[in-house]
Simulated scan of single mutants.
Amino acid sequence: MYDSRQAYVTLEDGTRVNARPELFLGTLTYDFPIPDMKYARPSPYDINSDEVHRRIPKLTNNDDYGSVYVIFKTPRFTENAKWTIHLGEMTVAGQKVAIPPMPLCYHPQKEWIGIEPLMRP
């Protein structure tokens, strides 16, 4: 189980941007977040659920698994920015597992950033 309500990004000036409270599923065609409420699920949510497994993107995920996304409403990310994402913790088999903070790097062509280890069951 993962609860996106605890997630936030620390910007270079030290300000904090909280995640949207919902988690968003990838679509059946492309593996990227769509902030359309029909793809939103309330937190906490089982990111290893059958619903996620069934949503296998046809074009971008090698027919492996579907994905779940945390969305932040942030300013534009520039190449000199030093942001850190804090995703909080997950509950795995009744145990709380902390997710260490991760520095983000600049991706000039992307509108979103995928964090691969969290997308795997």
Rank of each mutant, 00 (worst) to 15 (best):
R54E: 12
T78M: 13
F77E: 09
D31A: 12
Q95P: 00
F72C: 09
Y39F: 14
P100D: 00
L87E: 03
M37S: 14
R55N: 13
E22Y: 05
N62L: 05
D31C: 12
T74R: 03
A7K: 01
K82P: 00
K96Y: 00
V92K: 07
S67K: 03
A40I: 00
Y30V: 14
S49K: 02
T74Q: 01
T15G: 09
Y39M: 12
K38H: 15
E12K: 10
A19H: 06
N61K: 07
P100E: 02
W83L: 05
L25N: 12
D36K: 10
V70T: 15
T74G: 07
G14A: 08
P44D: 11
D63P: 02
E79S: 15
T10L: 08
P35D: 15
D50V: 10
P103M: 02
V92R: 08
K96T: 05
Y30R: 11
I99E: 01
H107D: 10
V97W: 09
N18Y: 08
H107C: 05
G94H: 07
R20D: 11
V9E: 04
L59N: 14
K58I: 15
D46T: 11
H86E: 05
P57W: 03
D31P: 03
E79I: 08
A98T: 11
M102L: 05
D36I: 07
E22M: 04
L87I: 01
D50H: 08
Q6H: 09
N48V: 14
P44R: 10
R54H: 11
G14S: 08
H86G: 00
Y30A: 10
P42S: 15
D31G: 15
Y106H: 07
R20A: 07
A93H: 06
T60V: 08
A93W: 03
V92D: 12
K38A: 14
P33M: 05
P57Q: 04
A7F: 04
W83T: 07
T29D: 15
P44Q: 10
V52G: 04
V9M: 08
Q6P: 00
S43I: 06
L104W: 00
K96D: 02
K96A: 04
Y30F: 11
K58C: 09
L23K: 04
P101S: 00
Q95F: 00
I47W: 12
G94K: 01
T27V: 03
T60H: 03
I56R: 09
E79H: 12
S43K: 06
P21M: 05
